[in-house]
Write a protein that binds this DNA or RNA. Structure first.
Ligand SMILES: [Mg+2]
Length: 217
DNA sequence: GCGACAG
DNA sequence: ATCTTGTCGC
């Protein structure tokens, strides 16, 4: 899934094609393990991190990170071509079963319906949900101030996600289905993954880990 | 044409 | 995302 040598129109076409493979149905099967993934960049290098937790207890079972030279620049709408492979490497390094993946980024709330969470979901065949700190596309009404208040995120006349007040006094986070899950399931899952902070626990931990410098020997 | 624009 | 100390609010 290299982005090298491809122009934007080609990448757009790839996204539109893969978006047709996205499945938005109720979550199937038992969920026992959930993973949170995020990616950071420091001095020309990308560092992806993944954290594995039990569900719904959310006890940490393992974590991993993968670092590499960063070649692809960040361009709105094409984040997956920059961060998806490092994230998959980190997920593979977990060496554990993953039933659901929470991704720092968008799911179907994307110009062509294939945010990084959806792209990762289709590529792995694992159910996924996108959680971002700001919306890439769509409009919404400010959720109520009460924690867990939510409002629809609408793009091109249809709901593609939610604005969720994940914590008192904080700006809302944006939740959208990635793959193999529906709007209601994505919202409920993220709510269940909150542990007193703005971000759901698996992503919060992956975010912290991705920002840690590789331990020096 | 202009402005917006996940991380 | 990153650059960065103190500061305001719950
Ligand atoms: Mg991130």
């Amino acid at each position: 899934m290299k982005a090298h040598g491809n122009n934007f129109s080609t990448l757009c076409e790839l996204q539109r094609q893969m978006a047709q493979q996205v499945v938005l149905s109720s979550l199937k099967g038992e969920i026992r393990f959930i993973s949170g993934v995020d990616c950071s960049e420091v001095q020309g290098r990308v560092r992806a991190a993944a954290v594995l937790m039990s569900w719904p207890q959310l006890e940490e079972l393992g974590r991993s990170a993968f670092e590499d030279v960063c070649t692809v620049p960040y361009v709105p709408g094409f984040l997956s071509f920059r961060e998806m492979e490092p994230m998959m490497k980190a997920l593979e390094a977990l060496k554990g079963p993953v039933d659901l993946i929470l991704v720092d980024g968008c799911g179907i709330a994307h110009p062509r319906g294939l945010g990084i969470a959806s792209h990762l979901g289709v590529a792995t065949g694992v159910p996924s949900i996108g959680v971002s700190k700001s919306p890439l596309v769509g409009s919404f009404e400010e959720p109520g101030e009460a924690p867990l208040s939510s409002s629809p995120l609408v793009f091109q006349g249809r709901q593609v996600g939610w604005a969720l007040r994940s914590r008192k006094g904080c700006k809302p986070i944006f939740v959208s289905p990635g793959h193999l899950i529906d709007l209601e399931g994505a919202l409920e899952t993220v709510k269940m993954a909150l542990r007193g902070y703005k971000l759901p626990e698996p992503i919060r931990r992956a975010d912290r880990l991705s920002k840690l410098r590789p331990p020096k020997a």
